[in-house]
């Protein structure tokens, strides 16, 4: 949007919403919405506390492990599916089911199989992230311009050359797109896992604040979490834009 010929930055309207939040909080209309300023004061108070740091590091560990497995398994599987028709036909129905299935329903199973700890949360995170990475990688490999591959072959490329110098790079925009969506889903997965298992990480913290009606604490943690999730997503979108210049013409 433009005001007097100046283009307003894309996310600048969030300031207006923040102001609105502050005003609603000040009027004391509802107990659940404390003024934003108060939330920020609380935020700076709790951000260095051991409880918060412990929750953050537990969450970060589970999240990073989950993302690692999603990528380390997802990309090779996706590439194989894109290249092998048999594998593709065997696996695709399942990938399609799990990419849109209500995976929350599986968390109780993970809890009884792997206990109420880190393992279950890591698996939940992986399950949330991996399927879209597989699907996008597969799509990226499948839509590679035939003539790029032919070009490499006509100049004597070995299959390994073709893989390293053509397939991976040509599919990179899709792979990165898949990783971005997968990571966003993994953030949701790690939080859902913690909420359901609820004795670890932010899940425990939310439970504590909610039962004690510490509203500004609750919002403070939420803001940190949202900001982190948003930053991760924007960073990956930035990486994706760096290769977008060739996504359209391959």
């Amino acid at each position: 949007m433009r005001v007097y010929g100046h283009k307003l930055p894309a996310m600048s309207s969030l300031l207006i919403w923040a102001l609105l939040w502050e005003i609603v909080g000040r009027t004391g209309a509802t107990f659940f919405i404390p003024p934003l300023s108060e939330v920020f004061v609380t935020l700076f108070k709790i951000i260095g506390t051991p409880a918060f740091l412990a929750a953050l590091s537990e969450t970060a560990q589970a999240f990073l492990a989950g993302v690692f497995f999603s990528i380390a398994i997802g990309i090779p599987v996706g590439i194989l599916m894109g290249k092998s028709r048999l594998l593709d036909e065997l696996l695709l129905p399942w990938v399609n089911i799990f990419v849109s299935a209500p995976l929350t329903a599986l968390v109780p199973v993970l809890m009884v199989l792997f206990g109420f700890g880190m393992t279950s949360i890591v698996i939940t995170t992986t399950l949330f992230g991996i399927w879209i990475i597989i699907l996008n990688t597969r799509a990226g490999v499948r839509q590679i311009n035939r003539s790029l591959v032919e070009m490499a072959i006509s100049f004597g490329a070995t299959p390994m050359d073709a893989f390293v110098k053509i397939y991976f790079w040509a599919a990179l925009p899709e792979i990165l797109g898949g990783v971005r969506i997968g990571v966003i889903r993994a953030v949701k997965g790690v939080i859902i896992g913690q909420l359901l298992i609820s004795i670890v990480g932010f899940g425990a913290l939310f439970e504590l604040y909610a039962t004690n009606f510490l509203m500004s604490h609750f919002w403070a943690v939420l803001i940190v979490l949202f900001a982190l999730a948003f930053s991760i997503s924007e960073f990956l979108a930035f990486l994706e834009r760096k290769v977008a210049y060739y996504a359209a013409k391959r």
Binding site: V187, L195, V221, L222
Partner: peptide, 10 residues
């Protein structure tokens, strides 16, 4: 982008 599930307790 955010894990909105965190809003459930609220």
């Amino acid at each position: 982008a955010a894990p909105l599930a965190a809003l459930i307790p609220l």
